[in-house]
């Protein structure tokens, strides 16, 4: 072999020389560091719109004729996937640039109780968690949220919540969902979490009586703690107008940098950077007989709380700038 022959395919300028192909651009959790190439127009390009129009009309017809299925909690999977999720996904991906870590800790089938920290004045973190689960979980699971009864008191809101898969936070419902193999999402801090001042951010509030733990113990469902960073900065609460809140019958009346003095504009969340970390599941199948033991329940609730608090600190170190990229 001559030297020329040897070096032929290594030298630039040679006819057969090719630059090594770069690795394909990978999406990193909603971030798009490299602008994606537009999808090549398909061969049947004009048909895409025909298809969309036909699909849209078929969807409308199904909705108007009542030809859809709803489960016993009022969950409407078709409406959720076709309407709610795409809208929320815009917030999730483009506004909050959400990154999801540790999705492999969420069981791929069977029941599970996802327990998170609650913050952000209105419960956007719960909604983003459902989107994250649908978007990132390999089985695209639906997360069934447990909501405060205040949500179900409000007309319209109650029906939206039910259609999106939520139900009232009470043990019978939680146990029923978990025994039927659903993923249940719960925020034990409740209004104490979302109504706290900005100065208290990322400090977990009291976890109530740990009712969520006894529900998980009774059904032997694993508990998956999840830490959500980013929701605190969406509507930072500077003050809480308690008398006004009492007058309106709500748990708190927030004053944020934009609300209420900017009016409806104050409802736009600040574009903070979100990180969602799922922690390793805590098995409970071996503790079923301790569901009524207050000490076991309390200790387990405390363990979940500590895990979430520690993970929050880790995540905050990963995210030095709340409004960074």
């Amino acid at each position: 072999m001559s030297q020329d022959e040897y070096r032929r395919d290594l030298l630039p300028g040679h006819a057969d020389f090719q630059l090594p192909t770069p690795a394909p651009a990978q999406r990193v959790n909603g971030n798009r560091p490299i602008p994606e190439k537009p999808v090549e127009p398909a061969v049947a390009a004009p048909d895409v719109w025909d298809q969309r129009v036909a699909d849209g009309l078929a969807f409308l017809r199904r909705r108007l004729s009542g030809a859809y299925e709803v489960d016993e909690f009022g969950f409407d999977p078709e409406l959720t996937d076709a309407v709610f999720q795409p809208i929320l996904k815009l917030l999730y991906r483009d506004w909050f640039r959400t990154e999801v870590l540790g999705i492999e800790n969420v069981p791929s089938d069977g029941g599970g109780l996802v327990v998170g920290n609650h913050s952000g004045t209105i419960a956007l973190d719960a909604l983003m968690l459902t989107v994250a689960m649908r978007d990132k979980h390999p089985k695209q699971r639906h997360l069934r949220l447990l909501g405060a009864d205040l949500v179900f008191r409000m007309p319209l809101m109650s029906e939206l919540a039910r259609a999106a898969g939520a139900t009232v936070a009470c043990n019978p419902d939680a146990e029923r969902l978990m025994t039927s193999g659903q993923l249940v999402g719960v925020f034990p801090e409740g209004f104490k979490g979302i109504g706290k001042r900005f100065s208290e951010r990322y400090k977990l509030q009291r976890f109530g009586r740990g009712g969520f733990v006894s529900a998980a113990l009774r059904t032997g469902t694993p508990i998956v703690p999840v830490a959500i960073v980013g929701a605190e900065e969406t509507y930072p609460i500077l003050a809480d107008l308690k008398p006004l809140a009492r007058l309106l019958g709500v748990p708190y009346f927030p004053v944020t940098p934009t609300f209420p003095h900017l009016g409806p504009l104050g409802l736009v969340p600040l574009p903070s950077k979100w990180l969602i970390q799922f922690c390793p599941p805590i098995p409970t199948a071996h503790l079923t007989e301790f569901a009524d033991d207050p000490l076991v329940v309390y200790n387990l609730a405390d363990q979940v709380r500590e895990t979430i608090q520690a993970t929050l600190h880790e995540l905050l170190e990963k995210r030095p700038d709340a409004f960074g990229p």
Binding site: E72, R153, T167, V168
Partner: peptide, 9 residues
């Protein structure tokens, strides 16, 4: 009641 469970046994 608004605090009722979704399914009654």
């Amino acid at each position: 009641s608004f605090r009722d469970p979704a399914v009654f046994t």
